[in-house]
Amino acid sequence: MDPEIAALAGTAGTTLVTLLATETWHRVRNGVVALWQRALPDRAPAIAVELNSARDDLIGAQSLGDRSTEAEIAAEWQGRIRRVLAARPEVASELRALLIELAPNQAVAPSVSQHATASGEARIYQAGRDLQVGEVDGR
C-alpha cells in the first residue's frame, strides 16, 4: 500500500475516534457514511451502525478512564479506512477534505517518502525531520 494512503488512514482513524466523543459526532458519522456511500455503497448502512456502536463503546471506555479501549477503537477504524482507501484510492482526496472540514485545527500532514540505495562502504543518512550524525571510533 502507498505509504501516503497508510498515513492518511492512520490520521483519519485517530481523528474520527477523537471526534466521535464530541458534539460534532453526527457530522462525523454523516461524513464517513457519505464517503462509504461513494466508495463502497453496499457497506454504507452497516458503517452507520458500526459508528454508532463505536461511539457508545468509546464513551463507556472514557467514562472508566480506559485508554486502551479507545486506542483499540482507533486502530479498528484506521484499518477500515485503510481498506476502503485500498479498494477505492480515488476517495483519498475526499477523505482529506472531510478531515479538514471536521477538524480544521488538526492539519493532515503531508507524507514523506524516502528511498535510498547503498553499495560498498557507502553510508546513507535520512530523516523526516531533525538528524544529528556523530562519528564513532574514527569512522
Rank of each mutant, 00 (worst) to 15 (best):
Q132A: 14
L51E: 06
W36M: 10
G65Q: 05
I73C: 04
E72I: 09
G120F: 10
P3T: 08
A86T: 15
A61S: 09
A12V: 07
L40E: 13
Q126L: 15
L64P: 02
A74S: 15
Q114T: 15
P41D: 01
A61E: 02
R27F: 11
V108C: 13
L58S: 02
H115T: 15
A9L: 08
V33A: 00
T69F: 00
L40H: 00
G10Q: 10
P104E: 01
D56C: 01
R83A: 07
P3H: 05
L51Q: 02
A74D: 07
S113N: 03
E90H: 06
A9P: 12
V84P: 07
Q78S: 14
Y125F: 15
T15F: 05
T11H: 14
V136R: 14
D57M: 03
L8C: 11
L85T: 09
A6G: 00
R88C: 09
L16Y: 07
R129D: 14
I81C: 06
L64G: 09
I124C: 12
N52W: 04
P89E: 02
Q132H: 10
P110S: 14
A87R: 10
A127D: 11
R123H: 14
G31T: 06
V108F: 09
A118G: 14
G13L: 08
I124W: 10
V28G: 04
R29Q: 11
R67G: 00
P89V: 11
Q37S: 10
E70L: 04
L99M: 13
R96C: 09
A87S: 13
A48H: 04
A74E: 10
T18N: 14
A109M: 05
A34I: 01
S53V: 08
V33L: 06
A86C: 01
D57R: 13
L131N: 08
V28M: 03
E50S: 11
L131G: 06
A109Y: 01
D42A: 13
W77P: 07
I124L: 15
A74V: 10
V91N: 00
S113K: 07
T69R: 12
G128A: 15
L8W: 13
V91M: 06
V28T: 13
D56S: 13
A39M: 01
G10L: 04
A103Y: 11
R139I: 13
S63Y: 00
V133M: 01
V28E: 05
L99F: 09
D56H: 09
A71M: 01
R29P: 05
S119L: 08
Q126R: 14
Y125M: 10
R55T: 02
R123P: 01
D57F: 01
A34L: 03
L51Y: 05
A122L: 11
V136F: 13
T24H: 09
T15C: 07
S113L: 05
E72H: 08
A39H: 08
S113W: 01
G134E: 12
T22A: 02
A44V: 02
G79N: 12
G65P: 06
A87P: 02
V33I: 03
V136Q: 13
D130G: 10
A6K: 12
V28P: 12
T117K: 12
R123W: 15
V28S: 05
A21K: 06
A44R: 04
V133W: 02
D130P: 00
A122R: 12
V136I: 15
G134W: 10
A127P: 03
Q126C: 08
G128I: 08
R29K: 14
E121N: 14
A86P: 00
